[in-house]
């Protein structure tokens, strides 16, 4: 039986953009996927430098990653946050200043 897919969009900024070489991409993921699933998918796609920006050494999503889900800042458990068709994730390194 074919697995149902949802299409989401991911926007990259700052070092994440430099590491991926794109500012935005579409990603097809199995229905029922979470933010964590999405991060794991792009981490596989772009290799270990990106992986280090997204995940802590212990495998959890890095606290220095800022994630916006459909425009809202999310600090919730990325593994508990379900993604739906058309969702947008925006990813930043959590820099601060001015």
């Amino acid at each position: 039986m074919p697995v149902a897919l949802v299409r989401i969009h991911i926007k990259y900024h700052n070092m994440l953009r430099r590491l991926t070489g794109v500012d935005m991409q579409a990603l097809d993921l199995p229905a029922g996927c979470t933010v964590q699933t999405a991060l794991e998918a792009i981490s596989r796609q772009y290799g270990h430098h990106l992986h280090e920006m997204l995940f802590s050494p212990n495998g959890t999503v890095a606290t220095h990653l800022v994630i916006f889900h459909n425009g809202q800042l999310t600090r919730d458990d990325p593994d508990g946050l379900l993604l739906s068709e058309g969702d947008e994730l925006m990813l930043f390194p959590s820099i601060s200043g001015g």
């Binding site: 900024h13 700052n14 070092m15 430099r18 800022v66 930043f92 390194p93 959590s94 820099i95 601060s96 200043g97 001015g98």
Partner: peptide
């Protein structure tokens, strides 16, 4: 990230 872009790095964030 801070070193590469300086304060402009926070614009979009």
């Amino acid at each position: 990230a801070v070193s590469a872009h300086g304060t402009p790095g926070i614009v979009s964030l």
